[in-house]
Each structure stands twice: as structure tokens, then as C-alpha cells.
């Protein structure tokens, strides 16, 4: 009994310690002298790895999310005879919620896991240690380009996701279900506000980008240096990343709607 309470306490202390370590890890990675000339080529390489290679899954899911929203929205709205409001429904739900959240979840699955596995394998094969032996700081050389690339790439992916989803819904709503194109786009433009809807979505996506990439590189960097450890770390990236994205989304939405 006492042992179980003690192990619960140990888990709690360990969790707090990991949060602290990850905070120091983030601080030591980002708060450094920027070395643009050295970092930029590495950053571009990582932008390619986390951004462009995620583009396909983001684009395809955006298309299907938009098309499904159009079908479902039309089905419900037609009961009230207001199919004309479909554009508004799709654009608001995509720019405010679905775009940032779904893209961040997909990003955690596609880019986050590959970052964790890559860094974890570097740890397991002692590449990170040998860098330190050569007086190259792995935080600067390996972690920072990946972290910054993730933070930049996710908002860009979210923008693309939003546009593809909205055009996907226009494809279904206007071309298939026969909603007039004028009322589809007109209602959308009348109800979507650039500042409160589009910009708030971008702010959300920046926060999600920091959260997901931070967890991914942290899990990789501090993974146990063996096969099971890397697998564990990759799983943790997806679980913690997704949960944190959903929880942060609730907090951010509450703040943006002014309920807090």
C-alpha cells in the first residue's frame, strides 16, 4: 500500500522533472546567438523534410475534410431551407477550428514521428555524442533547425489546408449539389472576418507548431538509446502531441472568444 503511494509520488516527481528538463531544453536550443549563415542551409533542408513531405497528406486530407463538410452541411442546412449558408459554415469551421487542429494532428503523425525517430536513432548510434566530442553542439546543429522548421512549416501547411478544404467544399457544394456560386462565396465573405477568424487560426497554428515540434525533438533527444526506446519515444510524440494540441485548442478558443 505504502509502496504504491510512493510509486505514485515517484511518477509525479518524474513527470515534473521531465517538464522542467524539456523547458530547459527548449530554452537552451532557442535562446542562443543566431548564426544565420550556418543555420540557413540546415533550416531549408529541414523545411523540406517536415514541410514539403507533409504537403501531400495535408492537401489530400484538406480536400476530403472540405468535401465531407459540404455534404454534411448541405444535408442539415437543407432541412431549414438555408443551403445558401453552406459557404459560411464551411469557411468558419475550417479557418477557426478544423484547419489548425487537424493539420497539427496530421503534422504530429507525419513530421513529428519522423523527427523523433531520426533524433532517437542519432542518440542510439552515438552520433549526438560524437558531435559533442568534435565540439559541435547537437542542440545547435541538429535540434534547432528541426525545431524552427517545424514552427515555421505548420502555419504554412495550415494555410494551404484551409484553402484546399474551402475549395473542396466549393467543388461539392457548387458543382455537385448545385448551390449558387454567388451565394456560396458571398455569404462566406460576409461572415468570415480576416482578423478574428483567419488570423486567430494562424495564431493557433503557430502555438500548435511550437507544441508538436518541441515534444517531437524532446522525445527524440531524451529517448532511451535502444530500439524499444525509440519506438516508445515515437509513440509518446504522437500521444502527447495530439493531446496537447487538443487541450491547447480548447484554451486558445476560450481566450479568443473572450470567455476568459
Amino acid at each position: 500500500m505504502i509502496n504504491q503511494i510512493a510509486s505514485l509520488g515517484r511518477t509525479g516527481i518524474e513527470t515534473c522533472r521531465q517538464i522542467g528538463v524539456s523547458g530547459i531544453f527548449l530554452f537552451r536550443t532557442l535562446v542562443r546567438m543566431p548564426q544565420i549563415r550556418k543555420t540557413l542551409p540546415l533550416l531549408i533542408q529541414q523545411m523540406y523534410a517536415v514541410g514539403i513531405l507533409s504537403l501531400l497528406i495535408i492537401g489530400v486530407s484538406g480536400l476530403f475534410v472540405g468535401m465531407v463538410l459540404a455534404l454534411q452541411g448541405d444535408h442539415i442546412l437543407s432541412q431549414f431551407g438555408s443551403e445558401d449558408q453552406l459557404g459560411q459554415l464551411v469557411a468558419l469551421s475550417v479557418t477557426r477550428e478544423l484547419g489548425p487542429v487537424l493539420a497539427a494532428l496530421l503534422f504530429a503523425g507525419r513530421a513529428g514521428t519522423s523527427l523523433t525517430a531520426e533524433i532517437g536513432l542519432m542518440r542510439a548510434t552515438d552520433q549526438l555524442n560524437s558531435m559533442e566530442m568534435m565540439a559541435v553542439d547537437p542542440l545547435l546543429r541538429v535540434i534547432r533547425p528541426r525545431l524552427v522548421a517545424g514552427i515555421i512549416a505548420l502555419p504554412l501547411l495550415v494555410l494551404i489546408f484551409n484553402v484546399i478544404a474551402i475549395y473542396g467544399s466549393a467543388l461539392i457544394g457548387v458543382n455537385w449539389l448545385g448551390i449558387s456560386s454567388g451565394s456560396f462565396w458571398g455569404n462566406m465573405q460576409a461572415s468570415v472576418d480576416f482578423r478574428t477568424d483567419v488570423v486567430n487560426g494562424i495564431v493557433k497554428s503557430i502555438v500548435f507548431g511550437v507544441a508538436v515540434t518541441w515534444i517531437a525533438v524532446y522525445q527524440g533527444f531524451y529517448s532511451k538509446p535502444n530500439a524499444a526506446g525509440i519506438g516508445r519515444a515515437t509513440t509518446n510524440t504522437v500521444i502527447y502531441g495530439s493531446l496537447l494540441v487538443l487541450a491547447l485548442d480548447f484554451v486558445l478558443t476560450a481566450m479568443m472568444l473572450g470567455e476568459w
Binding site: L159, I160, V163, M188, Q189, V192, D193, V198
Partner: peptide, 10 residues
């Protein structure tokens, strides 16, 4: 995409 969101959507 940002431009489309700004001018076409909002």
C-alpha cells in the same frame, strides 16, 4: 493561400 483566405474567403 493566405492571400486567397484574405480576399476570397474573408
Amino acid at each position: 493561400a493566405l492571400l486567397v483566405l484574405a480576399f476570397e474567403v474573408s
